[in-house]
Design a protein around this nucleic acid. Structure first.
Length: 231
DNA sequence: TCATTAAGTATGC
DNA sequence: GCATACTTAATGA
């Protein structure tokens, strides 16, 4: 296993309360692995034998509907736990995780989960907090999908990505991972054509700028307006 | 209002 | 130069 530094973990919420020695223990037990863009870390429905922490890169969490459509449930950013089926009392992963870019993740066998939650202060509360946050986010998108018009759904999806992974550039705030129109349509339950038309229109209106696999929001406020009002 | 079909242009390995 | 990403128009539910 590659050498890992304690400083990798000591600033992350699940570990920030811990002593250096404890972080050392955790790292000793971890396996670190690199994933190429497009590779899946685990498949939907697979035996949940490990849980993970993303160190670098971005992941898409993908579910497949009975009809065979791919739905992008959410994205994972560096520093976040994922594949934490044990926290949900599950033995299988509820969704697949796919690397959107080359990514680096740590993982531990699930049998260590009880030990982690019992032994390390802050780990349990933090991990359950992220579970709660994700459930909330998923539920929000779900009701949004059922009730809101397509334009609002796409606007909301862009805003969520910007909030989670936006980085500032001269032009505005850019989504930090590669994102295609197809991807956005997979998040919003529409078609890539509709997404393409919306992005073109918004680009003309000066709200976004986009090149292939790349979106920058130049006028977040206008996007917020689109996502909220206008009945 | 939006999906679908279809037919095109651009881009990048 | 081929596959992939993206655009645009037309049609119809």
């Amino acid at each position: 296993m590659a050498k890992l530094d304690e400083s990798l973990l000591c600033d992350l919420p699940p570990f920030c309360l811990l002593e250096r020695a404890q972080i050392r223990e955790i790292l000793e037990a971890a396996v670190s692995r690199r994933y190429e863009a497009g590779t899946s870390i685990f498949e939907e429905g697979a035996q949940a034998d490990r849980f993970f922490l993303l160190l670098d890169g971005y992941l898409r969490v993908v579910r497949t509907t009975p009809g065979g459509d791919q739905i992008i449930v959410l994205h994972i950013s560096p520093g976040q736990l994922f594949g934490i089926a044990p926290a949900l009392q599950r033995e299988t992963y509820p969704a697949a995780s796919v690397a959107a870019v080359e990514s680096l993740a740590l993982s531990w066998p699930v049998r260590l989960w009880p030990e982690f939650t019992a032994k390390y202060p802050g780990f349990a509360t933090e991990s359950y907090k992220t579970v709660g946050q994700r459930l909330g986010q998923i539920q929000e998108t779900l009701t949004e999908m059922a009730t809101q018009a397509v334009e609002k759904r796409v606007a909301c999806a862009l805003l969520r990505m910007v909030n989670q992974s936006g980085r500032k550039t001269e032009a505005g705030i850019e989504i930090a991972f590669p994102i295609t129109r197809q991807n956005i349509s997979d998040m919003t339950g529409t078609t890539l054509h509709t997404v393409s038309r919306l992005l073109s229109a918004w680009q003309k209106a000066g709200i976004v700028e986009s090149t292939r696999k790349h979106v920058t929001v130049t006028d977040p406020h206008a996007l917020v307006l689109l996502s909220e009002l206008d009945p």
